[in-house]
Design a protein around this nucleic acid. Structure first.
Length: 359
DNA sequence: AACCCGGGGAA
DNA sequence: TTCCCAGGGTT
């Protein structure tokens, strides 16, 4: 009897072990005739860029409840989209998401193109996402390569070339493995395998449907793949944040960051620039207005993609006669501050302004 | 080709 | 605490 092909082995495993995800049509439901919604596949794939399934779930639910179709999202206010995205990170994704929805609504009659090359032209859709939508939503033959696929395939074929140099070889291997039947389920199966069995550390080789054909199965070599080019270390930058409180209402002074760049378009507490040579002692000189600024006992630490940040936080409690006139920014009351487009580092700054160090 | 973009979970 | 993970855009 002929041995099963690699794709057959994996699809059999997927039929039994596919993760249940809010945007996924399970193999069973597929058999009952249910088809994936391209809008939901696209939305989930953009959210999943550089982000884990666990972090995405609640955001996905919130987005699809607020905007059930791509046309709804296209018609939304960008500010509302940024607020809904706050906390997910990589905020250019949210701006491109909105742009992409508008393009699909305006130029494609509200329907996503099925072709990989056409998808690739849309804002925020790169090689990975174009392939993922084409194959998962439309069952096109496409080689989907994300971090999971890179890990699984470098191990399966013992590819020791470091990333990113190994990318073309991995893409070719994935294209060769992908079957003509159920290419979308196959892509999702490889990614599920990477997420649950072929994990970065301590892979569960004993449970792997590909253990019999894997070059490194159950070997200590598995954990060392994929090899990666050395990453350069992150510098540390310093700055100060100023939390002004209206004691009558509890409102806090906020302002908008510039539309592009780091945390582009998001909301922030007024503060200094963030620089490697900034000394916190000089911070009060850079306050947005003169007041009785009191330094908080706890420093905020936060790590961005390419640097560490340490923020010294100051708070001033203002009354009617000390509250300044504003030249930009707004007062945000306690009842609405949860809905502001505050990135995580700014939530930490606000927490530091009001909390005491725990002992 | 090099650089710019957050945040969360596991060890 | 630290370590590790993970695509697209811009220049």
């Amino acid at each position: 009897m002929a041995s099963a092909s690699p794709s057959r082995l994996l699809l059999d495993w997927y039929d039994r072990h596919a993760r249940r995800l809010p945007w996924r049509v399970s193999p069973e439901d597929r058999l009952l005739g249910e088809v994936p919604d391209p809008y939901r596949i696209w939305l989930s794939e953009v959210m999943l860029q550089q982000t884990t399934v666990a972090a995405v779930k609640d955001y996905f639910t919130k987005f699809t409840r607020s905007w059930p179709t791509v046309t709804d999202l296209a018609a939304a206010a960008e500010e509302d989209v940024m607020k809904a995205w706050a906390g997910l990170g990589y905020y250019s994704r949210a701006r491109n998401l909105k742009k992409c929805a508008e393009t699909v609504a305006r130029d494609h009659d509200g329907r996503f193109p099925e072709d990989e090359d056409a998808l690739l032209k849309l804002p925020g859709i790169g090689p990975y996402t174009a392939a993922a939508i084409a194959t998962i939503a439309f069952d096109r033959h496409a080689a989907v390569v994300d971090g999971n696929v890179e890990r699984v395939l470098t191990r399966l074929f013992q590819i020791e070339t470091p990333l990113p140099d190994a990318k073309p070889e991995i893409k070719a291997k994935m294209a060769g493995l992908t079957p003509d039947q159920r290419p979308g389920d196959f892509a999702q199966a490889v990614m599920d395998l990477g997420a649950t069995i072929c994990t970065p550390r301590r892979p569960a080789c004993a449970l792997c449907p590909w253990r019999s054909i894997c070059k490194v199965q159950s070997s200590s070599l598995a954990e060392t793949l994929p090899r990666k080019a050395p990453k350069k270390e992150k510098p540390t930058r310093f700055g100060a944040a100023f939390v002004a409180v209206d004691t009558a209402t509890g409102a806090v002074l906020l302002r908008r960051r510039p539309p592009r760049g780091l945390l582009g378009g998001m909301t922030e507490v007024p503060g200094t620039e963030w620089a490697e040579d900034f000394s916190p002692e000089a911070a009060p000189d850079f306050a947005p207005f003169p007041a009785d600024w009191r330094q908080r006992p706890v420093e905020v630490k936060h790590t961005f993609t390419h640097f560490h940040l340490r923020l010294t936080v100051y708070r001033a409690d203002l009354t009617a006669d000390t509250t300044p006139l504003l030249d930009g920014g707004w007062w945000s009351a306690p009842e609405v501050i949860e809905t502001e487009a505050l990135p995580t580092v700014m939530k930490k700054a606000l927490a530091a302004a009001f909390e005491s160090p725990r002992k």
